[in-house]
Amino acid sequence: MLSNAKLNEKIAFGLLRLAMGMVVAFVLVILYYIVSNGYSAISLDFIFSMPRNRMTEGGIYPAIVGTMYLIIGSMAVALPLGILSAIYLTEYAQPGRTTWTIEMAINNLAGTPSVVFGLFGLAMFVKYLGFGASILSASLTLALLILPVIIRASQEALLTVPKEYREASLALGVTKWETIRRIVLPAAIPGMVTGAILSIGRVAGETAPILLTGAAYFLPRLPDSVYSQFMALPYHLYVLATSGTNIAQTRPIQYGTALILLIIVLFVNIIAVSIRSHYRKKINR
């Protein structure tokens, strides 16, 4: 005979297991549908050729190129800014009103919806600064979007560098900045790289901000300057799935595009996680 408490426990744990099972099932079902329907569409030709026949045939090359440009552009801005900002916050900032304000701004930027960043990018970069609907506007908008992610990841990486290294260097009569540059930063680089890579996944997948700042429905040519409009993978998928010329006929292309996006994002995540665990092991040795 089970006591009441024991029975309750059995039921409760059963429900917890069920919940966990459902969460895992969501992951598997989503991955299953995209992968099983997408993989037959993917080929070298699909990746490296232009769309043909009003995007009902051919590949997604310009969308891949556009997404690469966005990644490069936004990282080039956000990475240095984010790392320097994290260095300031962890190594120099004194607790007080200024630091509180910075922390609050970062938290709120992190929680601001991406479509709001899109509006901001439209108002400031596209219109006010006159960059137009372009790679430049979209990259800058995405850079601001991932800035908090990079700052937080870099701060975390800096905090894992043992205090002993800093003390040892300072005790040799080395200045604070030289200590940071030669001892702290090299030790924190793997963690920072992890954060940077994770935000690549974010840039690759964001749609709403680029939709407002320069992504094009279709372009016959690749972009030739930072002021050009561009195609990008997530927007391409959206367009094909909701307003393409022939939505049903282009299903395979849609699945293929979704799978490519998923591969980029998951691949990037796996790399980031393995870099992190590799270096964690090394430090704990």
Partner: peptide, 13 residues
């Protein structure tokens, strides 16, 4: 000053 006055810590670092 710290160049002139060196320090060795409790835990080797």
């Amino acid at each position: 000053l710290r160049k002139r006055v060196g320090m060795v810590f409790q835990k080797p670092n």
